[in-house]
């Protein structure tokens, strides 16, 4: 136990200032969005991530949002296990046709008002997989999409920027 405490205290908090250092505009945006989340979502924005056929690279970067460097919970953003608890769906992948019905059901299970963000190049327009029999070719072919975050995969910073920009707009 002593060693764990020593290591924990030794490393301390590595979380970085919002969300990219030296970016005054983004910090301002972060504060603004925190204000929106505080007001519109009672200080807590619940996100359900849905992989609709991604290659799993987007998932790795979305995971990185929760690592101690980014720690998005401090903005009031957290990931939930059930769509019934979610305000927002983060959807990755070109929407494989085998996932189409499951994605729709997830969306239906999400209470209104709800938002959908397509994450990654394939979620935006099919990306590298292009026009192929097995996919729908993008999230907007299946669901109403409120915002796009392109990138292959988008970096945690790009994800944060996209999230913040989306909520500054709504």
């Amino acid at each position: 136990m002593y060693r764990i405490l020593r290591k924990t205290l030794g490393i301390g908090v590595v979380t970085e200032k919002a969300p990219v250092q030296h970016d005054k505009n983004l910090e301002k945006l972060g504060i603004e969005v925190k204000r929106i989340i505080d007001k519109r979502f009672h200080g807590s924005l619940a996100i359900r991530e849905v992989d609709a056929g991604s290659c799993n690279a987007c998932e790795l970067e979305i995971h990185a949002l929760n690592n101690p460097f980014h720690d998005v919970e401090r903005f009031g953003i957290h990931f939930v296990a059930s769509p019934r608890h979610a305000d927002l769906l983060l959807v990755t992948g070109p929407v494989s046709r085998h996932m189409q019905a499951a994605l729709l059901r997830t969306w239906e299970a999400t209470p209104s008002p709800k938002y959908v963000i397509a994450v990654g190049d394939c979620a935006c327009d099919g990306g590298e997989f292009g026009d192929i029999y097995a996919t729908c070719g993008g999230v907007d072919k299946v669901l109403p999409v409120d915002a796009l975050i392109p990138g292959c995969p988008p970096t945690p910073e790009a994800l944060l920027r996209g999230l913040l920009a989306c909520f500054a707009r709504i």
Partner: peptide, 28 residues
Amino acid sequence: YVHKGIEKAAVGRDAAGLVKLAGRVSGD
């Protein structure tokens, strides 16, 4: 569930295009 037709999507690509696709078989 995440079948996206990678084997078919590869057909007709050139070598560089194929390697790009191969890099997305499993992102990790």
